[in-house]
Structures are given as C-alpha cells and as structure tokens.
Design a protein around this nucleic acid. Sequence first.
DNA 1: CGTTGGGTTGATCGACCTCAATAAAAGTGG
DNA 2: CCACTTTTATTGAGGTCGATCAACCCAACG
Lengths: 256, 256
Amino acid sequence: MDERSELVSICGAEPLSLETALAPCPQFSAATKCETCRLRALSFCGAIDPGELDVLDALSTPMAFKGRSMLFEQGADADAVYNITAGVAMLSKVLPDLRRQVIGFALPGDFLGLALNQKNVFSVEAVTPLEACRFQREAFSDFLDARPPTMRRLYSKASYELTLAQDQIVVLGRNSAEERLASFLIGFRNRWMRVNGNRLYVALPMRRQDMADFLGLRLETVSRVMSRLVRQKLIAIVPDGVRLLDVARLEELAAH
Amino acid sequence: MDERSELVSICGAEPLSLETALAPCPQFSAATKCETCRLRALSFCGAIDPGELDVLDALSTPMAFKGRSMLFEQGADADAVYNITAGVAMLSKVLPDLRRQVIGFALPGDFLGLALNQKNVFSVEAVTPLEACRFQREAFSDFLDARPPTMRRLYSKASYELTLAQDQIVVLGRNSAEERLASFLIGFRNRWMRVNGNRLYVALPMRRQDMADFLGLRLETVSRVMSRLVRQKLIAIVPDGVRLLDVARLEELAAH
DNA sequence: CGTTGGGTTGATCGACCTCAATAAAAGTGG
DNA sequence: CCACTTTTATTGAGGTCGATCAACCCAACG
C-alpha cells in the first residue's frame, strides 16, 4: 500500500488529482474553480455575485470521497459543511440499539450542514464516489452573515429540505410498503432530473438495505415489493437501477 | 347571532378585544404591541433591534382563533404568515383518499409559513383557542430581505424545524407504538417547558385521533398504549392531559 | 474455485389494524 | 338543571401486512 492509498484509507477521502496527493489529509489544494463549476446554478453558490466568486474559492476546499466512506459522523464536532458537486450521499441516524433510519439522500447541488450546528445530528456516507466543496463551518457562517442573498438562498434550501422531510413523514406515517417504494422511485427520479434529465431510467446506487432503512421497511420487504412492481409491469430491474415502465401508475401510488 | 359572532363564524377568527369587533373580518387593529410582548424572546422577532419594533408593529395584525378553526388550508394561496403568541396549532396533510398525517404541533413562539411558499403545502388548525400575529407574506418577505439578523433568526427556526422533522422520521420509521407515544409525550413536554416550565404535567389539548395521525397509528392503538403506560405506572391520565410518573423510563423508551 | 456480500424467495409469526360494542364526556334545548 | 343527542375515548375479538428466520442464488474477487 503506497502512501497515497494509506491517506485515503485513513480519512475516506481522496484528492481530486495526483498533484495534490502529498498534501496533509483533509487539505487538498483546489483542483477546480467556482467560476467554471457547472453545478453553481443548482447550488447555494448560485446567489453569489460572479465578481465575488474568488472569495468563495478561497474558503472552499474541493474534496473527493470513495464510495461507502463517511463524510462525517453523528455526534462528532461539526467542523465543516459541504456542498456536493458529484455523486450521491446518504444521511442517517442510528438509535442506541443500532436500529438505523436513513433521513435522506443528497445529490449534486445539495448542501450538507444546513443547520450549522456545533455537533452533527446525523451521519453522512458517500453512496457512490463523491465530490464536494468543503468549508470550515465558522468561516462559512461568517461568510453568510456578510452576504444576505446567499443566506437567503441557503434558507430556501433549508425550507425545501423541510418540505421534503415533511413529505417523508407522510410516507412513513400513512403509506403501505408498495406506496413507499413508488414514492421513493418517483421522488428520487424527480430530484435527479434537476441534475440529469433522464426520465425513465432511475439509477439506484444504494443497497436494498439503505432503501429499506429510508422507507421504514426490512430489506426483504423492499426486495419482495420490487419484484411485485416488476410483475405488475410498473418497473423493470436493470443493472444498477430500474427502468420506469408506467410512470402514471407509479405517481398515482406515490400520491400527493 | 350578533354581527360579531357572525364574523367569527365566517373566518374562524375573532378579534382580541371588543373594541375591534366592527373592523372588517381579517383586519383587526392591534390590541397588543411588540414592545410589551412577553413571547418576543422565544419568537423570530427576538432578533429585531428594540428601536425598530414599531416597524414590525406596523406590519403585524394580532389575531385570535377559536379552537378547531382553520388558520389556513393545504393548497390555498399563502397570502399570510403567522407568529403564534398563545395556544397550540396542528399542521397536517391529507392524501387524496383522505388519509391524514399530522406533520407537527406549533406552540407559542413558533412561526407558521417558514418556507414562504406561494401555496400552502399543509393545513393549519387551531387545537386550542389561539392568538397569533399575522403578516402579509409579500410584505414580510421584503422586511426579511432588509433585516439580515431577522432572516438569520428565521433560518435558525427553519433549521430547528428540520431537525424536529428528521427526528419524527426516525420515530415513524423505526419506533414501536409504545416508543412513539413515549417520544411524543417527552417531546411535547420538552417543547412546552420552553414556554411554561411545568415538568411533570403535560397538557394534551389535541384528540386521540390527532395524536394517532401524528404518530402514524390508529386512535385505538393510541388509546390502548396509553392504558398500557398507565398500567406500567409510567404515566397517569388526568383531565386534559397526563402526568409523567417515570420520566427516566419514558425518556429511555423515547430513545435518542 | 471457494469465499464473501448482496439480492431474492419461502414459511411462519406478531404488532398493529379493523370492525364492533360500550363507556364516558361534552354539548343542546327545554 | 336535567333528559337527550353527539362526540370522544376505551376495550374486545379477529384479520392482515410486514417482520422474522432461513434457504438459496448469483456475481465479484482473491
């Protein structure tokens, strides 16, 4: 194992380019610039005056994480916040007896650490290889106080997350296993469509267990219900995801 | 039926004092002033410079609602936002087939309309007689843009609501009926303690059906589990609420 | 080519739901 | 203030959906 892969295994993150490999573990010099970032329109940083992007660049540290590595852990000090630029992350909480609930999935453009709390109230794990801009929490908070339009944008993101969470409360409180699956597939597809317009193929990089923990079900139930949806010709299971065969019927099941 | 009570029956709201009775229905002249408001410390308005409170007074319309009247309805235009000053409100969503999920309960100091959406995504109903400051949404939004510290405060409130919603996701996804009840009683008590310090008596002004719809259970299950908690001597059912007999054990059940 | 991790399917069980009856409380009108 | 109705809460008996326990499949990988 060479020095670089050792670094990777320790912090779960890897540099964006070989040139930065020897920098101290979580500190990588910027390989990308905000100016050229294709995700800016979707992210909180879309509210920033283009002339001021270099200020943000100075605060931001681009990072890359391997699939299944942890970005941060529930209960640990929240020293940083992240803006996801590529890949999928999974937010989860674990009860004292190890029951796990997945709170949500974060996609490119999503922000981790909206609450700016001192301690993380959930864990975040990369589901796929993942790229994100990292900011020191304190410095980022100061930056926000000086930029009301950016704070407003982040406030909007928080509001949106709140409505997503409330929708999930409805799903968990009142939907059957089949409705939960449909709601997850449609919801995940709709959020991906903002990033990548594909309407019928839904990539599912997470495991059945992760879906189960998100939907308040057991993985066997997820597997069974998926099979049932296939038998009903609502979906087809394809490598690394599903193809939606009857979106109308699925949306009806997902019901809003 | 006199003119005043007719007004009340039409809009579900009543003026705070007899003097304002003849004003047009949702427009009541201010009976209270921000300066003398005891709830300011708990509310978003706590971030406002005392010298500027008259600006807020000008925007605010104090209102009173009868128990079980609607503040606003899911799907309707969100023309106003509210800051609750007394009483308890209930936020809920209804599915097309009339299944209902209660999203949460709002207490004095809580803000309704954090998302500042054009349409309401849930309904809000007064559970008890309720007092609230009403603001025109547009005007309020402009006010926020001009007062970054107030926006920050509201952002904090949104973040807090988000963590509450995420906690409820865990409850609905992974907790048994008994754990849900315990979590509700402890959570509701803890939130009331911020307003009114009582530690052992928990007022439950909502119906069993409301609790059931909040906890993703049927009202019969709520009733049965409450009886079981009484048999286990964890609570005692008293008029309009419960007395907590074994807080430690309840907190353990509620698990966090 | 055995091992390992993830996924599917089957058989059984149990927590909560459903339907139903009763009890208690809160309104309502005389 | 008291009959009467209506609403809300409790309790019981039986049914169901998803959980549990277990076997098996399959692809990746050393």
